[in-house]
Design a protein around this nucleic acid. Sequence first.
DNA 1: AAGGTATACTAAGGATTTCTTAGTCTGCAA
DNA 2: TTGCAGACTAAGAAATCCTTAGTATACCTT
Lengths: 108, 108
Amino acid sequence: MPELHPLPARLKQVRILKQLTQQKLGELLGLDPSNASARMNQYERGKHTPDFDTLKRIANVLDVPVAYFYCEDELTASILQAAEALSEEQKLALLVSIREMVITEKEK
Amino acid sequence: MPELHPLPARLKQVRILKQLTQQKLGELLGLDPSNASARMNQYERGKHTPDFDTLKRIANVLDVPVAYFYCEDELTASILQAAEALSEEQKLALLVSIREMVITEKEK
DNA sequence: AAGGTATACTAAGGATTTCTTAGTCTGCAA
DNA sequence: TTGCAGACTAAGAAATCCTTAGTATACCTT
């Protein structure tokens, strides 16, 4: 099994949502305009994987956390993205409530 | 700025928590025992970054989601790890409640 | 229909990074 | 002080990514 990387699908989805072309997105990251399209296409088709620095810039431009591109299920990806907007305090409260949910489920 | 990769710190933390040596963890992933220690050390010191397949096997052995290694703050990493134990239904409920939290915060 | 344009996509080689090998270094216990 | 476990590293071999130079596809416009 060659384990499928979640990045290509997530990248495409968010890029389309933000109405950017592969070329334009690449330029916004600061890639050389002469190869921005080629590189972004390679990432989006899963041909190659960006290094962390590039990944971070992609995440910044698309306004999602870096970890978003590594979420293996859709729902977890959405949770992560939504949680980004929370304050530290709210995140802590969230963590506590998730742990309660887990305990509650076990008791069933 | 060379953007710091979150993986080294997270990897070390979970490995220690599970009381594994770099060598032993590498072997559990299926790395060649003759270089398991060297490779795990390189990942943990941030000298090199594992490819997705290796990352996935590390995540499996340590029982955390792959995205955990890409979370840039501690709290978000914990949220992600905790959320793993939830059912699809519970995740959906969680997503809804996060979105409510965001709206509530805005109203202040 | 033909030509133009925008976007997506790709092969191939040079550039860069990782993996393997063969160790050294550090701390601690006998 | 010797031995051992665990952490760590340099350097070359091997693998992967980046750059170049395009082709492919869909959709307009004339």
